[in-house]
Nucleic acid binder design. Structure first.
Lengths: 219, 219
DNA sequence: ATTAATTTTTAGATTCGCCTAAATTTAAAT
DNA sequence: ATTTAAATTTAGGCGAATCTAAAAATTAAT
């Protein structure tokens, strides 16, 4: 079966919202999708008819097993395209979302699987979110905040908790990017700032605020 | 300005048909787009209002200067995506058209320009058709049929005149693909078959039929 | 436990791109 | 030069996805 871009967007939004609330409400969806509640109601009826979700009027909505499969497929497409844009086309992390939002609706499964192979079957996207494999399985994130990394434990930056241009600017200035190998040399108790050493290079001092939006995987 | 996928498809179809006839007719368009004449009339009115074409009822249609610009942009996108699919994702030439038909409607100009750079600014797509640059300029094809290549003149395969699976199979068996460097060692007058030498490798003999659907650029 | 406020759904309309059937214009044929 | 045939346009409608305004159901509050 194949779904329209609008349908896929609803499914994806419900999938996201499900994590934070047992039942997804009409208004929450309208908010997330930048649309109005009546439009949501209409679409929910349609998706219910297609058995992608369980919806009872006034009660809220949850994805069916089939719906979750569709959601994972869309998430897979989105995150693979983001990975492509960053690792091959030199986009910044803060620029990829909108474009991936369009690319994720391209329908060829073959395309996505070949793209996956071309990228070397990455398990995390540039924001550190897991990429479902072609069966929809996802690897649980083994990453921790840099603030939680033990001293002298070697690790690499695997995700960034925000995509603000301000953060991007700071990271560039500090010479930090996705994949940068580092370990923590010292933690200053005064301001909880960290001295980190970048893989056989000089040390830099970074603030607690910065360290807490950086995620690392030990290696 | 930005145009819908449907609008872009009409513009592209008109652009193609303009080459073969001074005026593009409603029926020809309906045929090319697998749609019905009344739909075409509707869209022509809309595109005329947007000044993308000159249309007089019952007389036919021609693209305006602005329309040609849009057409070239769409053609550029289509051919760059086809190049990507073949040269990076290992698609066969015969499989790329449909997918590219979807990808060509992604709207980010930045994406396309970065894709262009990633591919090394190719001037021809896998079928040998020229790729407009970011200004819409196209290079005239400097390629010739392999049957017309002088003896010992080094060249590379730049296009294939057909996309049949049968041809693809044969090329694979002979070890020939887009970009393969070669030169002609001998032409047998009996059947006009050619012995060609693949760039520092063994020679192979190919039939005149095959040679005449292969296009090469000297280099 | 009624009333008030909020959330959600229904009703009815709009735009886009398409359709069929019928009318109209242009071109071809006798 | 009429008549016939073909091409094109108009008229009216449909499904998808959206909207506003109004009604109904749920939740919160006095």
């Amino acid at each position: 079966m194949q779904y329209s871009a609008a349908e896929e967007n609803y499914i994806k939004a419900i999938y996201r919202l499900q994590d934070h609330a047992a039942m997804v409400t009409t208004n929450a969806l309208a908010d997330a999708l930048q649309t109005k509640p009546p439009s949501v109601t209409d679409m929910l009826k349609k998706l219910k008819a297609k058995k992608l979700l369980n919806y009872e009027p006034y009660k809220g909505v949850k994805l069916s097993a089939e719906g979750k499969k569709v959601a994972l497929a869309v998430v897979r497409k989105h995150r693979l395209w983001e990975s492509f844009l960053v690792s091959k086309l030199q986009f910044g992390w803060d620029e990829v979302h909108e474009v991936a939002e369009e690319l994720e609706h391209i329908t060829s499964k073959k395309l996505i699987d070949k793209l996956d192979a071309f990228l070397g079957f990455p398990r995390f996207d540039p924001h550190g979110d897991p990429i479902p494999d072609s069966q929809g399985r996802i690897t649980i994130q083994p990453q921790v905040r840099l603030t939680e990394l033990p001293l002298h434990q070697s690790a690499e930056i695997s995700a960034v908790g925000s995509q603000s241009p301000a953060l991007l600017e700071l990271l560039k200035a500090k010479g930090l990017q996705l994949g940068t190998r580092l370990d923590v040399r010292k933690i200053f108790s005064f301001d909880r700032s960290l001295d980190i050493r970048i893989k056989q290079q000089a040390s830099v001092n970074i603030s607690f605020e910065l360290a807490s939006v950086l995620f690392v995987k030990t290696c």
